[in-house]
Simulated scan of single mutants.
Amino acid sequence: MSTWQELVARVAAEPESNDARLVCADVLCGTDDARVELIHAQVALSGRMDPARRQALTKRVKALLSEHGSRWRQPLQEAHASDGDFSRGFIEEATLSEGHLAKHGEALLAREPLHRLTVETKDGKGLALAAGQPWFERIRQVRLMGSGVARAAKALASAPHAGHLARLMVSGANDEAVEAVAGGRALTGLRSLSVSSAELSDASAEALAKGPLSLEALYLSGTGLSDEGAQALARGTALASLKLLALNRNSLSDEGAQALAASKTLLQVERLELSRNELSEEGVLAFRSAKAMPKLRRLELLDMGLDRRELEPVHKRLGAGLRL
């Protein structure tokens, strides 16, 4: 591994830090002065500065990308990847097919600190091949799309090098895929799971509630979840670390809301989203007690026509955190 590849790997491992980026700029100095300037300019723009200087730097970044961007994006173009925007001097996110990821992923990650991927799936085989390689351990976020989402999600759940994946977003999964992810002992680093555009049964909620994942954020909006699913989540000892639970646009009634409020395990939840369900004021009043999700700071109940006056006890507890 070259010095540059080692530095790129460090940037990927410390995405929030600017130190490794500036070290990369030092190494590049004299070989690609324009890229050095881009790194320094975008790192500076991520902090505070005088408005006039911000305007001048923004204009300079635009000029640098116009002149050199195509050359810097060449590795992505060769891999048939898109969405290669520069952030603090580097490309961190890309969209590509699972086949191209398997074929070009190692070379891509040697050139840029990619750690967020949108993967267009076909049958899951390409993703399984990619996630079976050591370089995949640098990937922190994956969004799965396309016709092979279910099989791709199952492949990730058992992939030997998916343990550093922290965030997974799946569009169009089925129960089998969600249950595979929920029980995926390979996904030891997963902290955020989002399932959208899917029609799931309450069995998925049951699997998530019992699985080995240590999730901090769970998004199950628009998945057809019923009160039984909410009750399963409320009982789920596996969800004790949850801080955000999004259950918008489902089929929850007061019974489901009351089960969540009475949960003995969802004690770390700070944000609960229940918008566009079938709740009445009676169900929402279950959250008036400070014992109901004791760390709750934000409760979203949009587009349900609830009467704020009847919910005054909840408003008294949450203040501006109650969103109607």
Rank of each mutant, 00 (worst) to 15 (best):
L117D: 02
N277S: 05
A155S: 07
I139T: 14
G99Q: 08
G283Y: 05
A246I: 10
E278I: 10
S192C: 15
S204P: 01
E137A: 15
R235P: 13
S221H: 11
L225G: 04
L57D: 03
G69P: 14
D83I: 02
R60A: 13
E312S: 08
V269T: 05
S97M: 10
T95I: 04
E312C: 05
A207G: 07
E16S: 02
E92C: 08
L233S: 05
M49P: 06
G319M: 08
A209M: 12
S171H: 06
K264G: 11
V36C: 01
M49Q: 10
R71S: 00
G283T: 06
A290T: 08
W4I: 15
A182C: 00
S289P: 09
Q133W: 15
L220Q: 08
L279T: 03
G189F: 04
G321H: 01
L76T: 00
E37Q: 12
D50V: 12
D26N: 12
S46M: 11
L165A: 01
G69N: 12
K125W: 11
V23P: 01
T58H: 07
G172C: 07
L311I: 02
R71L: 04
E206A: 03
A207R: 03
G148A: 05
W135N: 11
H68K: 13
L156A: 13
R21F: 08
I39G: 03
Q5E: 08
L208F: 00
G105C: 05
R73W: 02
E16W: 02
S253F: 07
K59E: 11
E37S: 10
W72P: 09
V61F: 03
A13H: 04
T3E: 14
V178L: 08
E14D: 07
M293I: 10
G89I: 07
I39F: 09
L57G: 01
S147T: 09
R151K: 14
F287G: 07
T265C: 12
E112L: 11
Q77F: 12
A153C: 03
G124F: 11
L156C: 13
H80Y: 14
E281P: 13
A232N: 04
G172A: 01
A44N: 11
A107W: 02
G84A: 04
F136V: 15
L22E: 02
L239A: 04
A186T: 03
E179N: 00
R143E: 15
S82H: 05
E106D: 15
L108N: 02
R308M: 04
R298W: 12
K316R: 13
S253N: 11
P294N: 04
A259Q: 11
R323T: 02
D307M: 12
L108C: 09
A186V: 06
H68C: 15
S147Q: 12
L127D: 09
L117Q: 10
R54S: 15
L28F: 10
R297V: 13
S221A: 07
Q77H: 13
M145F: 14
E67G: 13
L76V: 00
L38S: 15
L109Y: 09
A128Q: 14
V195N: 02
A155P: 01
A261M: 10
G124D: 14
D85C: 04
A9F: 03
V314C: 08
H115M: 00
A9Q: 03
R249E: 15
V8D: 01
E278A: 14
V119K: 02
H315A: 10
L296N: 02
L22Q: 06
